[in-house]
Computed example of a mutant assay.
Amino acid sequence: MELIKELRSKQKEIEGLTSLVTNSVEEKDMREMAAEELLEAVEEEKRLQHELFRTLLPKDEADERDCILEVRAGTGGEEASLFAMDIFKMYEKYSQNNGWKFDTIDIMESAVKGYKEASGTISGSGVYGKLKFESGIHRVQV
């Protein structure tokens, strides 16, 4: 309820600032200040809407579990294997930045030192919940 109240309050603020921007023809400084505040208020409204949406989603029981990450080179030859290597290393660094444990399971290198296939485990608080919607040439599973 607090988020809804805060969102409604922000929407009223946006209405007032919009009115001020469009109606204050004579006062240029006032209009410019209101326009800056309006941009900030709109960004805050988007953040509040996103946060409200997240709180309304049901919790998945698997969100707190660890996961396995698999990355495979797609169509594209050696460039694809280099891209797969970059993706795998990106997830490794992302895991470290989030305080998760990343362990490499297997890497199959290509001729130019890229990765044809790579897999690893990611352990930590809320890992699967953060990564479950990842898709592409890589996949995340429980």
Results as ranks from 00 to 15, higher is better:
Lys116Ser: 09
Ile122Gln: 12
Arg47Val: 06
Thr55Asp: 15
Arg47Met: 09
Asp106Ala: 11
Trp100Phe: 10
Glu37His: 08
Glu134Ser: 13
Gly126Ala: 10
Asp66Gly: 00
Ile137Trp: 08
Lys113Ala: 14
Arg47Tyr: 11
Asn98Gln: 15
Ser119Ala: 13
Glu92Leu: 11
Thr55Tyr: 03
Asp103Tyr: 07
Ile107Gly: 11
Ser110Gly: 13
Ile122Trp: 14
Tyr91Lys: 00
Glu117Ser: 13
Val71Pro: 12
Asp103Leu: 11
Phe53His: 15
Ala111Val: 03
Ile68Trp: 07
Tyr115Pro: 09
Lys59Gly: 03
Lys93Gly: 03
Glu36Cys: 08
Glu32Tyr: 10
Met85His: 15
Glu32Arg: 07
Cys67Lys: 07
Gly77Tyr: 02
Asn98Val: 09
Glu27Met: 05
Cys67Ile: 07
Leu57Arg: 13
Asp63Gly: 10
Ser95Asn: 10
Trp100Thr: 05
Tyr115His: 13
Glu117Leu: 09
Glu70Tyr: 09
Leu48Ala: 03
Phe53Arg: 15
Glu61Leu: 01
Lys59His: 09
Glu32Gly: 03
Asp103Ile: 02
Tyr128Cys: 02
Tyr128Ile: 00
Asp86Ile: 01
Ala62Arg: 14
Gly129Lys: 00
Leu57Trp: 12
Trp100Tyr: 09
Phe133Tyr: 09
Met33Asn: 15
Ser123Cys: 11
Val42Trp: 00
Phe133Glu: 02
Leu38Trp: 01
Leu39Glu: 14
Asn98Gly: 09
Tyr115Asp: 12
Ser135Cys: 13
Tyr128Lys: 04
Lys93Ser: 02
Ile87Glu: 05
Lys116His: 07
Ala111Cys: 02
Ser81Gly: 04
Ala118Lys: 00
Pro58Asn: 12
Gln49Arg: 15
Lys46Gln: 12
Glu44Cys: 02
Gly114Val: 06
Lys101His: 13
Phe83Ile: 04
Glu32Ala: 00
Asp66His: 08
Leu57Pro: 12
Thr104Glu: 14
Leu52Tyr: 03
